[in-house]
Design a protein around this nucleic acid. Structure first.
Lengths: 289, 289
DNA sequence: TTTAATTACGTGCGACGTAAGCATT
DNA sequence: AATGCTTACGTCGCACGTAATTAAA
Protein backbone atom coordinates (compact mmCIF):
# COMPACT_ATOMS: atom_id res chain seq x y z
CA UNK A 1 0.00 0.00 0.00
CA UNK A 2 2.36 2.73 -1.16
CA UNK A 3 1.69 6.20 -2.29
CA UNK A 4 2.10 4.98 -5.81
CA UNK A 5 -1.00 2.92 -5.31
CA UNK A 6 -3.04 5.96 -4.47
CA UNK A 7 -1.59 8.00 -7.25
CA UNK A 8 -2.44 5.24 -9.61
CA UNK A 9 -5.92 4.97 -8.19
CA UNK A 10 -6.60 8.60 -8.92
CA UNK A 11 -4.96 8.38 -12.30
CA UNK A 12 -7.13 5.46 -13.30
CA UNK A 13 -10.20 7.29 -12.12
CA UNK A 14 -9.22 10.29 -14.20
CA UNK A 15 -8.31 8.37 -17.30
CA UNK A 16 -10.99 5.70 -17.05
CA UNK A 17 -8.38 3.53 -18.57
CA UNK A 18 -5.67 1.57 -16.87
CA UNK A 19 -3.23 1.72 -19.72
CA UNK A 20 -3.21 5.48 -19.97
CA UNK A 21 -3.19 5.86 -16.21
CA UNK A 22 -0.18 3.60 -16.06
CA UNK A 23 1.68 5.85 -18.45
CA UNK A 24 0.69 8.89 -16.46
CA UNK A 25 2.24 7.58 -13.30
CA UNK A 26 5.13 5.99 -15.11
CA UNK A 27 4.60 2.29 -15.02
CA UNK A 28 3.52 -0.43 -17.38
CA UNK A 29 -0.02 -1.52 -17.97
CA UNK A 30 0.80 -4.79 -16.33
CA UNK A 31 2.21 -3.29 -13.20
CA UNK A 32 -0.75 -0.98 -12.93
CA UNK A 33 -3.19 -3.81 -13.32
CA UNK A 34 -1.54 -5.72 -10.54
CA UNK A 35 -1.26 -2.71 -8.30
CA UNK A 36 -4.94 -1.94 -8.68
CA UNK A 37 -5.90 -5.53 -8.01
CA UNK A 38 -3.75 -5.52 -4.92
CA UNK A 39 -5.23 -2.29 -3.69
CA UNK A 40 -8.75 -3.54 -4.13
CA UNK A 41 -7.86 -6.72 -2.30
CA UNK A 42 -6.50 -4.70 0.55
CA UNK A 43 -9.57 -2.50 0.72
CA UNK A 44 -11.80 -5.50 0.55
CA UNK A 45 -14.09 -4.30 -2.19
CA UNK A 46 -13.81 -3.38 -5.85
CA UNK A 47 -13.15 0.24 -6.62
CA UNK A 48 -13.53 -0.06 -10.34
CA UNK A 49 -15.95 -1.86 -12.56
CA UNK A 50 -14.50 -3.66 -15.52
CA UNK A 51 -17.12 -3.65 -18.16
CA UNK A 52 -16.69 -3.87 -21.87
CA UNK A 53 -13.72 -1.79 -22.82
CA UNK A 54 -13.80 0.94 -20.31
CA UNK A 55 -13.37 1.24 -16.62
CA UNK A 56 -15.97 2.71 -14.31
CA UNK A 57 -15.99 3.58 -10.67
CA UNK A 58 -18.09 1.90 -8.02
CA UNK A 59 -20.08 3.91 -5.51
CA UNK A 60 -17.64 3.15 -2.76
CA UNK A 61 -14.85 3.75 -5.17
CA UNK A 62 -15.97 7.34 -5.58
CA UNK A 63 -15.61 7.93 -1.90
CA UNK A 64 -12.23 6.34 -1.73
CA UNK A 65 -10.97 8.29 -4.67
CA UNK A 66 -12.14 11.53 -3.17
CA UNK A 67 -10.24 10.81 0.00
CA UNK A 68 -7.21 9.75 -1.94
CA UNK A 69 -7.27 13.03 -3.79
CA UNK A 70 -7.27 14.92 -0.55
CA UNK A 71 -4.48 12.80 0.73
CA UNK A 72 -2.31 13.43 -2.26
CA UNK A 73 -3.07 17.10 -1.97
CA UNK A 74 -1.70 17.03 1.54
CA UNK A 75 1.38 15.35 0.24
CA UNK A 76 1.86 18.00 -2.36
CA UNK A 77 1.42 20.59 0.32
CA UNK A 78 4.35 19.10 2.15
CA UNK A 79 6.51 19.14 -0.93
CA UNK A 80 5.52 22.70 -1.68
CA UNK A 81 6.40 23.61 1.85
CA UNK A 82 9.79 22.08 1.44
CA UNK A 83 10.47 23.95 -1.77
CA UNK A 84 9.18 27.18 -0.42
CA UNK A 85 11.53 26.94 2.48
CA UNK A 86 14.38 26.90 0.06
CA UNK A 87 13.02 29.67 -2.05
CA UNK A 88 12.39 27.41 -4.97
CA UNK A 89 8.68 27.82 -5.07
CA UNK A 90 7.35 29.91 -7.89
CA UNK A 91 10.52 29.20 -9.81
CA UNK A 92 10.29 28.63 -13.51
CA UNK A 93 12.60 26.59 -15.62
CA UNK A 94 12.80 26.88 -19.37
CA UNK A 95 14.20 23.76 -20.89
CA UNK A 96 15.07 23.48 -24.55
CA UNK A 97 15.26 20.19 -26.34
CA UNK A 98 14.96 18.67 -29.79
CA UNK A 99 12.27 16.30 -30.99
CA UNK A 100 13.68 12.84 -30.37
CA UNK A 101 14.68 13.57 -26.82
CA UNK A 102 11.56 15.54 -26.08
CA UNK A 103 9.43 12.57 -26.88
CA UNK A 104 11.53 9.84 -25.35
CA UNK A 105 13.57 10.92 -22.39
CA UNK A 106 11.89 14.04 -21.15
CA UNK A 107 8.40 12.87 -20.24
CA UNK A 108 9.50 10.53 -17.49
CA UNK A 109 12.02 13.02 -16.29
CA UNK A 110 9.56 15.84 -16.02
CA UNK A 111 6.96 13.65 -14.39
CA UNK A 112 9.33 12.69 -11.62
CA UNK A 113 10.44 16.25 -11.16
CA UNK A 114 6.93 17.59 -10.94
CA UNK A 115 6.19 15.00 -8.32
CA UNK A 116 9.11 16.13 -6.26
CA UNK A 117 8.62 19.84 -6.82
CA UNK A 118 5.02 20.60 -7.58
CA UNK A 119 5.64 24.30 -7.08
CA UNK A 120 8.16 24.67 -9.88
CA UNK A 121 6.97 25.26 -13.39
CA UNK A 122 8.91 23.69 -16.21
CA UNK A 123 8.44 25.04 -19.72
CA UNK A 124 9.76 22.91 -22.52
CA UNK A 125 10.82 24.55 -25.77
CA UNK A 126 11.34 22.37 -28.75
CA UNK A 127 13.67 23.24 -31.57
CA UNK A 128 16.51 21.89 -33.66
CA UNK A 129 19.79 21.19 -31.98
CA UNK A 130 21.15 24.39 -33.43
CA UNK A 131 18.33 26.43 -32.02
CA UNK A 132 18.87 24.87 -28.63
CA UNK A 133 22.46 25.98 -28.73
CA UNK A 134 21.44 29.47 -29.71
CA UNK A 135 18.94 29.71 -26.89
CA UNK A 136 21.51 28.53 -24.42
CA UNK A 137 24.03 31.08 -25.65
CA UNK A 138 21.46 33.86 -25.58
CA UNK A 139 20.45 32.80 -22.09
CA UNK A 140 16.80 32.59 -23.03
CA UNK A 141 16.57 29.16 -21.46
CA UNK A 142 18.08 27.84 -18.26
CA UNK A 143 18.62 24.32 -19.51
CA UNK A 144 19.18 22.73 -22.86
CA UNK A 145 19.63 19.24 -24.21
CA UNK A 146 22.65 19.18 -26.47
CA UNK A 147 24.24 16.44 -28.49
CA UNK A 148 27.79 15.30 -27.94
CA UNK A 149 28.50 18.10 -25.52
CA UNK A 150 32.09 19.13 -25.01
CA UNK A 151 33.39 17.33 -21.95
CA UNK A 152 33.09 19.44 -18.85
CA UNK A 153 30.24 21.37 -20.28
CA UNK A 154 27.66 18.70 -19.53
CA UNK A 155 26.01 18.89 -16.20
CA UNK A 156 24.17 15.64 -16.58
CA UNK A 157 24.34 12.90 -19.18
CA UNK A 158 20.82 12.00 -20.19
CA UNK A 159 21.53 9.05 -22.38
CA UNK A 160 23.26 7.81 -25.47
CA UNK A 161 22.71 5.58 -28.42
CA UNK A 162 24.62 4.23 -31.36
CA UNK A 163 24.30 5.07 -35.03
CA UNK A 164 23.22 2.13 -37.16
CA UNK A 165 23.10 1.62 -40.90
CA UNK A 166 19.80 0.66 -42.46
CA UNK A 167 19.48 -1.02 -45.86
CA UNK A 168 16.91 -3.11 -47.63
CA UNK A 169 17.08 -6.72 -46.52
CA UNK A 170 18.28 -9.21 -49.07
CA UNK A 171 21.36 -7.35 -50.28
CA UNK A 172 24.59 -9.17 -50.49
CA UNK A 173 26.16 -6.88 -47.93
CA UNK A 174 23.73 -8.29 -45.47
CA UNK A 175 25.45 -11.62 -44.96
CA UNK A 176 28.89 -10.08 -45.27
CA UNK A 177 28.60 -7.40 -42.67
CA UNK A 178 25.62 -8.13 -40.48
CA UNK A 179 27.70 -9.21 -37.54
CA UNK A 180 30.89 -7.21 -37.73
CA UNK A 181 29.22 -4.04 -38.94
CA UNK A 182 29.68 -1.84 -41.94
CA UNK A 183 32.23 0.95 -42.41
CA UNK A 184 31.33 4.53 -43.24
CA UNK A 185 33.37 4.13 -46.38
CA UNK A 186 31.19 1.31 -47.62
CA UNK A 187 28.11 3.38 -46.87
CA UNK A 188 29.31 6.54 -48.53
CA UNK A 189 29.56 4.79 -51.86
CA UNK A 190 25.91 3.83 -52.00
CA UNK A 191 22.72 5.65 -52.92
CA UNK A 192 21.94 7.47 -49.70
CA UNK A 193 18.83 8.71 -47.97
CA UNK A 194 19.76 11.55 -45.70
CA UNK A 195 17.77 11.64 -42.45
CA UNK A 196 18.35 14.50 -40.08
CA UNK A 197 15.83 14.27 -37.26
CA UNK A 198 16.12 18.01 -37.30
CA UNK A 199 19.72 17.86 -36.18
CA UNK A 200 22.93 19.05 -37.75
CA UNK A 201 24.57 15.93 -36.46
CA UNK A 202 23.33 13.45 -39.04
CA UNK A 203 24.46 10.94 -41.61
CA UNK A 204 26.01 13.55 -43.83
CA UNK A 205 27.90 15.30 -41.07
CA UNK A 206 29.20 12.01 -39.74
CA UNK A 207 30.50 10.92 -43.07
CA UNK A 208 32.13 14.23 -43.74
CA UNK A 209 33.68 14.24 -40.33
CA UNK A 210 35.33 10.99 -41.30
CA UNK A 211 36.86 12.73 -44.30
CA UNK A 212 34.54 11.03 -46.76
CA UNK A 213 31.79 12.23 -48.99
CA UNK A 214 28.37 10.94 -49.90
CA UNK A 215 28.49 10.16 -53.59
CA UNK A 216 24.77 10.02 -54.25
CA UNK A 217 22.19 11.58 -51.92
CA UNK A 218 18.79 10.60 -53.25
CA UNK A 219 16.53 12.32 -50.73
CA UNK A 220 16.76 14.39 -47.59
CA UNK A 221 14.06 13.90 -44.97
CA UNK A 222 13.63 15.16 -41.46
CA UNK A 223 11.95 12.16 -39.91
CA UNK A 224 14.05 9.11 -39.06
CA UNK A 225 11.24 6.67 -39.57
CA UNK A 226 10.33 8.11 -42.93
CA UNK A 227 13.89 7.54 -44.03
CA UNK A 228 13.63 3.90 -43.07
CA UNK A 229 10.43 3.60 -45.10
CA UNK A 230 12.22 4.91 -48.11
CA UNK A 231 15.01 2.43 -47.53
CA UNK A 232 12.46 -0.35 -47.54
CA UNK A 233 11.26 0.94 -50.89
CA UNK A 234 14.75 0.40 -52.18
CA UNK A 235 15.70 4.04 -52.72
CA UNK A 236 18.99 3.62 -50.90
CA UNK A 237 20.59 3.16 -47.52
CA UNK A 238 20.61 5.42 -44.51
CA UNK A 239 22.17 6.11 -41.16
CA UNK A 240 20.00 6.61 -38.08
CA UNK A 241 20.30 6.53 -34.33
CA UNK A 242 19.42 3.12 -32.95
CA UNK A 243 16.73 4.50 -30.68
CA UNK A 244 15.00 6.11 -33.63
CA UNK A 245 14.41 2.85 -35.51
CA UNK A 246 10.81 2.09 -36.34
CA UNK A 247 9.18 -0.74 -34.42
CA UNK A 248 8.51 -2.68 -37.58
CA UNK A 249 11.74 -3.80 -39.22
CA UNK A 250 10.35 -6.10 -41.90
CA UNK A 251 12.14 -5.61 -45.15
CA UNK A 252 14.98 -3.80 -43.46
CA UNK A 253 18.45 -4.86 -42.57
CA UNK A 254 19.93 -3.02 -39.63
CA UNK A 255 23.60 -3.34 -38.91
CA UNK A 256 26.08 -1.65 -36.61
CA UNK A 257 28.56 0.86 -37.95
CA UNK A 258 32.18 -0.19 -37.62
CA UNK A 259 33.89 1.24 -35.77
CA UNK A 260 30.87 2.18 -33.66
CA UNK A 261 29.77 5.79 -33.44
CA UNK A 262 27.69 6.99 -30.55
CA UNK A 263 25.73 10.09 -29.91
CA UNK A 264 25.27 11.35 -26.42
CA UNK A 265 22.64 13.64 -24.96
CA UNK A 266 23.66 15.95 -22.20
CA UNK A 267 21.83 18.55 -20.21
CA UNK A 268 23.76 21.78 -19.93
CA UNK A 269 22.71 24.94 -18.22
CA UNK A 270 23.08 28.48 -19.38
CA UNK A 271 24.63 31.26 -17.31
CA UNK A 272 21.31 32.15 -15.74
CA UNK A 273 20.65 28.49 -15.10
CA UNK A 274 23.67 28.27 -12.91
CA UNK A 275 22.27 30.78 -10.49
CA UNK A 276 18.73 29.48 -10.46
CA UNK A 277 17.89 27.41 -7.42
CA UNK A 278 15.07 25.69 -9.23
CA UNK A 279 17.31 24.68 -12.09
CA UNK A 280 19.92 23.34 -9.75
CA UNK A 281 17.25 21.35 -7.95
CA UNK A 282 16.36 19.70 -11.22
CA UNK A 283 19.94 18.85 -11.98
CA UNK A 284 20.46 17.53 -8.49
CA UNK A 285 17.49 15.23 -8.90
CA UNK A 286 19.07 13.76 -12.00
CA UNK A 287 22.35 12.93 -10.40
CA UNK A 288 20.76 10.20 -8.36
CA UNK A 289 17.50 9.18 -9.97
CA UNK B 1 8.93 7.83 0.04
CA UNK B 2 6.21 5.49 1.20
CA UNK B 3 3.59 5.79 3.81
CA UNK B 4 5.78 4.08 6.33
CA UNK B 5 8.08 7.05 6.15
CA UNK B 6 5.33 9.42 7.15
CA UNK B 7 4.07 7.17 9.88
CA UNK B 8 7.54 6.97 11.21
CA UNK B 9 7.96 10.72 10.99
CA UNK B 10 4.92 11.28 13.16
CA UNK B 11 5.91 8.49 15.50
CA UNK B 12 9.33 10.02 16.02
CA UNK B 13 7.80 13.40 16.64
CA UNK B 14 5.50 11.90 19.23
CA UNK B 15 8.10 9.82 20.95
CA UNK B 16 10.97 12.28 20.64
CA UNK B 17 13.02 9.17 20.34
CA UNK B 18 13.81 7.17 17.28
CA UNK B 19 14.21 3.89 19.08
CA UNK B 20 10.77 3.97 20.65
CA UNK B 21 9.19 5.29 17.48
CA UNK B 22 10.73 2.42 15.58
CA UNK B 23 9.08 -0.05 17.90
CA UNK B 24 5.79 1.74 17.56
CA UNK B 25 5.74 1.35 13.83
CA UNK B 26 7.29 -2.06 13.91
CA UNK B 27 10.81 -1.72 12.67
CA UNK B 28 14.27 -1.69 14.10
CA UNK B 29 16.08 1.36 15.34
CA UNK B 30 18.47 1.03 12.48
CA UNK B 31 15.82 0.89 9.82
CA UNK B 32 14.08 3.85 11.36
CA UNK B 33 17.26 5.86 11.46
CA UNK B 34 17.87 5.20 7.81
CA UNK B 35 14.31 5.92 6.83
CA UNK B 36 14.35 9.26 8.61
CA UNK B 37 17.64 10.19 7.04
CA UNK B 38 16.29 9.30 3.65
CA UNK B 39 13.15 11.29 4.20
CA UNK B 40 15.08 14.35 5.24
CA UNK B 41 17.29 14.01 2.21
CA UNK B 42 14.26 13.87 0.01
CA UNK B 43 12.71 16.92 1.62
CA UNK B 44 15.96 18.78 1.39
CA UNK B 45 16.12 20.00 4.96
CA UNK B 46 16.38 18.47 8.43
CA UNK B 47 13.14 17.77 10.21
CA UNK B 48 14.67 16.75 13.49
CA UNK B 49 17.48 18.11 15.55
CA UNK B 50 19.82 15.57 17.05
CA UNK B 51 21.10 17.11 20.23
CA UNK B 52 22.43 15.37 23.27
CA UNK B 53 20.26 12.39 23.92
CA UNK B 54 16.93 13.49 22.72
CA UNK B 55 15.41 14.43 19.44
CA UNK B 56 13.77 17.75 18.74
CA UNK B 57 11.80 19.12 15.85
CA UNK B 58 12.90 21.95 13.59
CA UNK B 59 10.59 24.81 12.73
CA UNK B 60 9.99 23.47 9.25
CA UNK B 61 9.69 20.04 10.71
CA UNK B 62 6.69 21.15 12.74
CA UNK B 63 4.92 22.17 9.59
CA UNK B 64 5.74 18.98 7.80
CA UNK B 65 4.64 16.86 10.71
CA UNK B 66 1.36 18.67 10.93
CA UNK B 67 0.67 18.00 7.27
CA UNK B 68 1.75 14.42 7.63
CA UNK B 69 -0.70 13.98 10.48
CA UNK B 70 -3.49 15.26 8.29
CA UNK B 71 -2.41 13.00 5.50
CA UNK B 72 -2.42 9.94 7.68
CA UNK B 73 -5.80 10.96 9.00
CA UNK B 74 -7.07 10.94 5.44
CA UNK B 75 -5.66 7.52 4.98
CA UNK B 76 -7.38 6.27 8.07
CA UNK B 77 -10.57 7.80 6.79
CA UNK B 78 -10.28 5.64 3.71
CA UNK B 79 -9.72 2.53 5.74
CA UNK B 80 -12.62 3.38 7.99
CA UNK B 81 -14.74 3.91 4.93
CA UNK B 82 -13.81 0.51 3.65
CA UNK B 83 -14.66 -1.18 6.91
CA UNK B 84 -17.87 0.72 7.32
CA UNK B 85 -18.99 -0.41 3.94
CA UNK B 86 -18.71 -3.94 5.11
CA UNK B 87 -20.37 -3.27 8.41
CA UNK B 88 -17.21 -3.85 10.31
CA UNK B 89 -16.86 -0.43 11.77
CA UNK B 90 -17.68 -0.11 15.43
CA UNK B 91 -17.02 -3.80 15.76
CA UNK B 92 -15.30 -5.02 18.85
CA UNK B 93 -13.18 -8.09 19.14
CA UNK B 94 -12.34 -9.69 22.44
CA UNK B 95 -9.24 -11.78 22.18
CA UNK B 96 -8.04 -14.03 24.96
CA UNK B 97 -4.45 -15.11 25.26
CA UNK B 98 -1.92 -16.27 27.81
CA UNK B 99 1.18 -14.39 28.92
CA UNK B 100 3.93 -15.69 26.67
CA UNK B 101 1.96 -15.18 23.49
CA UNK B 102 0.51 -11.87 24.61
CA UNK B 103 3.95 -10.43 25.00
CA UNK B 104 5.61 -11.94 21.95
CA UNK B 105 3.30 -12.61 19.06
CA UNK B 106 0.35 -10.37 19.70
CA UNK B 107 1.83 -6.86 19.69
CA UNK B 108 2.97 -6.97 16.08
CA UNK B 109 -0.19 -8.69 15.04
CA UNK B 110 -2.45 -6.14 16.66
CA UNK B 111 -0.42 -3.24 15.36
CA UNK B 112 -0.84 -4.41 11.79
CA UNK B 113 -4.50 -5.07 12.29
CA UNK B 114 -5.16 -1.65 13.77
CA UNK B 115 -3.40 -0.12 10.82
CA UNK B 116 -5.65 -1.97 8.44
CA UNK B 117 -8.84 -1.52 10.42
CA UNK B 118 -8.64 1.59 12.56
CA UNK B 119 -12.35 1.41 13.25
CA UNK B 120 -12.32 -1.95 14.97
CA UNK B 121 -11.54 -2.14 18.63
CA UNK B 122 -9.58 -5.11 19.86
CA UNK B 123 -9.66 -5.94 23.56
CA UNK B 124 -7.08 -8.38 24.78
CA UNK B 125 -7.81 -10.49 27.84
CA UNK B 126 -4.96 -12.29 29.45
CA UNK B 127 -5.37 -15.47 31.45
CA UNK B 128 -4.06 -18.97 31.81
CA UNK B 129 -4.57 -21.38 28.97
CA UNK B 130 -7.38 -22.97 30.92
CA UNK B 131 -9.13 -19.69 31.38
CA UNK B 132 -8.82 -18.99 27.70
CA UNK B 133 -10.54 -22.27 26.95
CA UNK B 134 -13.29 -21.45 29.42
CA UNK B 135 -13.88 -18.06 27.90
CA UNK B 136 -14.05 -19.54 24.46
CA UNK B 137 -16.52 -22.17 25.60
CA UNK B 138 -18.63 -19.60 27.42
CA UNK B 139 -18.53 -17.37 24.36
CA UNK B 140 -17.31 -14.40 26.32
CA UNK B 141 -14.54 -13.82 23.79
CA UNK B 142 -14.59 -14.07 20.04
CA UNK B 143 -11.05 -15.30 19.67
CA UNK B 144 -8.66 -17.20 21.84
CA UNK B 145 -5.10 -18.36 21.58
CA UNK B 146 -4.93 -22.01 22.51
CA UNK B 147 -2.10 -24.45 22.72
CA UNK B 148 -1.91 -27.56 20.60
CA UNK B 149 -5.42 -27.09 19.28
CA UNK B 150 -7.23 -30.12 17.99
CA UNK B 151 -6.73 -30.27 14.23
CA UNK B 152 -9.58 -28.65 12.39
CA UNK B 153 -10.39 -26.46 15.31
CA UNK B 154 -7.64 -24.00 14.59
CA UNK B 155 -8.49 -21.17 12.31
CA UNK B 156 -4.97 -19.85 12.12
CA UNK B 157 -1.67 -21.16 13.33
CA UNK B 158 0.19 -18.37 15.05
CA UNK B 159 3.45 -20.07 15.70
CA UNK B 160 5.18 -22.96 17.32
CA UNK B 161 8.26 -23.77 19.25
CA UNK B 162 10.05 -26.77 20.67
CA UNK B 163 10.47 -27.83 24.26
CA UNK B 164 14.06 -27.89 25.42
CA UNK B 165 15.69 -29.27 28.52
CA UNK B 166 17.73 -26.91 30.66
CA UNK B 167 20.35 -28.07 33.13
CA UNK B 168 23.36 -26.56 34.82
CA UNK B 169 26.34 -26.52 32.51
CA UNK B 170 29.18 -28.78 33.40
CA UNK B 171 27.21 -31.96 34.03
CA UNK B 172 28.33 -35.14 32.45
CA UNK B 173 25.10 -35.44 30.50
CA UNK B 174 26.17 -32.34 28.69
CA UNK B 175 28.76 -33.96 26.50
CA UNK B 176 26.73 -37.11 26.13
CA UNK B 177 23.51 -35.64 24.90
CA UNK B 178 24.10 -32.07 23.77
CA UNK B 179 23.79 -32.89 20.14
CA UNK B 180 21.36 -35.75 19.89
CA UNK B 181 19.12 -34.47 22.67
CA UNK B 182 17.89 -35.94 25.91
CA UNK B 183 14.94 -38.26 26.42
CA UNK B 184 12.05 -37.52 28.73
CA UNK B 185 12.94 -40.65 30.62
CA UNK B 186 16.39 -39.35 31.44
CA UNK B 187 14.87 -36.08 32.58
CA UNK B 188 12.19 -37.62 34.73
CA UNK B 189 14.77 -39.28 36.92
CA UNK B 190 16.44 -36.05 37.95
CA UNK B 191 15.65 -33.36 40.50
CA UNK B 192 13.15 -31.25 38.63
CA UNK B 193 12.09 -27.63 38.66
CA UNK B 194 8.59 -27.42 37.39
CA UNK B 195 7.92 -24.31 35.29
CA UNK B 196 4.41 -23.71 34.05
CA UNK B 197 4.26 -20.31 32.44
CA UNK B 198 0.72 -20.33 33.67
CA UNK B 199 -0.19 -23.23 31.41
CA UNK B 200 -1.45 -26.71 32.10
CA UNK B 201 0.73 -27.90 29.29
CA UNK B 202 4.08 -27.95 31.04
CA UNK B 203 6.95 -30.16 31.99
CA UNK B 204 4.88 -32.30 34.31
CA UNK B 205 2.05 -32.82 31.89
CA UNK B 206 4.46 -33.69 29.11
CA UNK B 207 6.24 -36.28 31.16
CA UNK B 208 3.02 -37.81 32.36
CA UNK B 209 1.66 -37.89 28.87
CA UNK B 210 4.66 -39.98 27.96
CA UNK B 211 3.64 -42.49 30.65
CA UNK B 212 6.43 -41.40 32.98
CA UNK B 213 6.53 -39.66 36.29
CA UNK B 214 8.71 -36.97 37.81
CA UNK B 215 10.50 -38.60 40.70
CA UNK B 216 11.58 -35.46 42.51
CA UNK B 217 9.92 -32.08 41.94
CA UNK B 218 11.92 -29.55 43.89
CA UNK B 219 10.01 -26.36 43.13
CA UNK B 220 7.09 -25.23 41.07
CA UNK B 221 7.31 -21.74 39.56
CA UNK B 222 5.17 -19.88 37.13
CA UNK B 223 7.81 -17.93 35.28
CA UNK B 224 9.97 -19.71 32.72
CA UNK B 225 12.95 -17.51 33.25
CA UNK B 226 12.82 -17.90 37.01
CA UNK B 227 12.97 -21.64 36.52
CA UNK B 228 16.12 -21.26 34.46
CA UNK B 229 17.65 -19.14 37.21
CA UNK B 230 16.99 -21.89 39.70
CA UNK B 231 18.56 -24.37 37.35
CA UNK B 232 21.65 -22.23 37.27
CA UNK B 233 21.72 -22.36 41.04
CA UNK B 234 21.92 -26.09 40.76
CA UNK B 235 18.51 -26.95 42.18
CA UNK B 236 17.65 -29.27 39.34
CA UNK B 237 16.78 -29.48 35.69
CA UNK B 238 13.74 -28.14 33.87
CA UNK B 239 11.79 -28.21 30.67
CA UNK B 240 10.82 -24.97 28.93
CA UNK B 241 9.69 -23.78 25.52
CA UNK B 242 12.63 -22.67 23.45
CA UNK B 243 11.18 -19.23 22.88
CA UNK B 244 10.93 -18.68 26.61
CA UNK B 245 14.63 -19.11 27.28
CA UNK B 246 16.31 -16.16 28.96
CA UNK B 247 18.69 -14.11 26.85
CA UNK B 248 21.57 -14.86 29.12
CA UNK B 249 22.47 -18.54 29.04
CA UNK B 250 25.69 -18.47 31.01
CA UNK B 251 25.88 -21.37 33.40
CA UNK B 252 23.11 -23.20 31.61
CA UNK B 253 23.14 -26.10 29.27
CA UNK B 254 20.25 -26.18 26.85
CA UNK B 255 19.59 -29.29 24.84
CA UNK B 256 16.82 -30.55 22.61
CA UNK B 257 14.40 -33.17 23.80
CA UNK B 258 14.55 -36.44 21.87
CA UNK B 259 12.33 -37.18 20.19
CA UNK B 260 11.42 -33.51 19.75
CA UNK B 261 8.22 -32.19 21.26
CA UNK B 262 6.62 -29.06 19.89
CA UNK B 263 3.94 -26.79 21.15
CA UNK B 264 1.78 -24.92 18.73
CA UNK B 265 -0.26 -21.78 19.19
CA UNK B 266 -3.46 -21.53 17.30
CA UNK B 267 -6.11 -18.88 17.11
CA UNK B 268 -9.59 -20.34 17.37
CA UNK B 269 -12.84 -18.51 17.40
CA UNK B 270 -15.85 -19.07 19.57
CA UNK B 271 -19.38 -19.50 18.20
CA UNK B 272 -20.03 -15.78 18.31
CA UNK B 273 -16.69 -15.17 16.66
CA UNK B 274 -17.76 -17.15 13.65
CA UNK B 275 -20.58 -14.75 12.95
CA UNK B 276 -18.65 -11.56 13.65
CA UNK B 277 -17.50 -9.77 10.54
CA UNK B 278 -14.79 -7.98 12.44
CA UNK B 279 -13.43 -11.21 13.80
CA UNK B 280 -13.41 -12.81 10.42
CA UNK B 281 -11.59 -9.80 9.04
CA UNK B 282 -8.86 -10.32 11.58
CA UNK B 283 -8.55 -13.98 10.74
CA UNK B 284 -8.47 -13.20 7.07
CA UNK B 285 -5.64 -10.79 7.59
CA UNK B 286 -3.61 -13.52 9.21
CA UNK B 287 -3.96 -15.99 6.43
CA UNK B 288 -1.68 -13.94 4.27
CA UNK B 289 0.40 -11.64 6.41
C1' DT C 1 -7.39 -7.50 -36.14
C1' DT C 2 -6.64 -4.30 -32.74
C1' DT C 3 -6.98 -2.67 -28.17
C1' DA C 4 -7.16 -3.53 -23.35
C1' DA C 5 -6.86 -6.17 -19.20
C1' DT C 6 -5.25 -10.19 -16.73
C1' DT C 7 -1.98 -13.84 -15.63
C1' DA C 8 2.54 -16.09 -15.39
C1' DC C 9 7.14 -15.75 -14.56
C1' DG C 10 11.68 -14.01 -13.80
C1' DT C 11 14.75 -10.56 -11.99
C1' DG C 12 16.85 -6.26 -9.71
C1' DC C 13 16.75 -3.12 -6.46
C1' DG C 14 15.90 -1.47 -2.25
C1' DA C 15 14.24 -1.79 2.30
C1' DC C 16 15.24 -3.70 6.45
C1' DG C 17 17.73 -6.43 9.86
C1' DT C 18 22.33 -7.69 12.08
C1' DA C 19 26.14 -5.92 13.95
C1' DA C 20 29.67 -2.81 14.56
C1' DG C 21 30.90 2.04 15.48
C1' DC C 22 30.57 6.32 17.83
C1' DA C 23 28.99 9.74 21.05
C1' DT C 24 26.96 11.36 25.14
C1' DT C 25 25.75 10.94 30.33
C1' DA D 1 28.62 1.07 31.66
C1' DA D 2 24.46 2.15 29.42
C1' DT D 3 21.77 4.37 26.18
C1' DG D 4 20.81 5.99 21.59
C1' DC D 5 21.93 7.29 16.85
C1' DT D 6 24.55 6.25 12.73
C1' DT D 7 27.12 3.40 9.35
C1' DA D 8 28.41 -0.81 6.96
C1' DC D 9 27.02 -4.72 4.87
C1' DG D 10 24.42 -8.64 3.39
C1' DT D 11 20.06 -10.80 2.12
C1' DC D 12 15.45 -11.54 1.14
C1' DG D 13 11.02 -10.13 -0.81
C1' DC D 14 8.43 -7.62 -3.49
C1' DA D 15 7.24 -4.72 -7.08
C1' DC D 16 7.68 -4.15 -11.62
C1' DG D 17 8.71 -5.37 -16.38
C1' DT D 18 8.44 -8.86 -20.33
C1' DA D 19 5.65 -11.69 -22.52
C1' DA D 20 1.96 -14.87 -23.16
C1' DT D 21 -3.21 -15.17 -22.72
C1' DT D 22 -7.80 -13.87 -22.89
C1' DA D 23 -11.65 -11.04 -24.17
C1' DA D 24 -14.19 -7.69 -26.44
C1' DA D 25 -15.40 -4.82 -30.39
Amino acid sequence: MNLLHWRLLVAVADASNITRAAEDVGMTQSGASQAIAQLEASLGFPVFTRERRHIGVTALGEQVIEQARKMLAQLNAIRALADESRGLSGGRIRLASFPSVTSTLLPGLLRDFKRLHPGIEVVVLEGTDEEVEEWLAADTVELGVVMNPAPGRTNVVLGQDAWVAVMPSGQQQERNSKARGITLEELAGQPFILATGGCVVNGKSLIEQAGLQLCDVRVKVRDWVSACMLVREGLGVTLVPESALPAELRGLCVMPVAPPIHREFGLVCSPSGKTSGATQALLKGLHKG
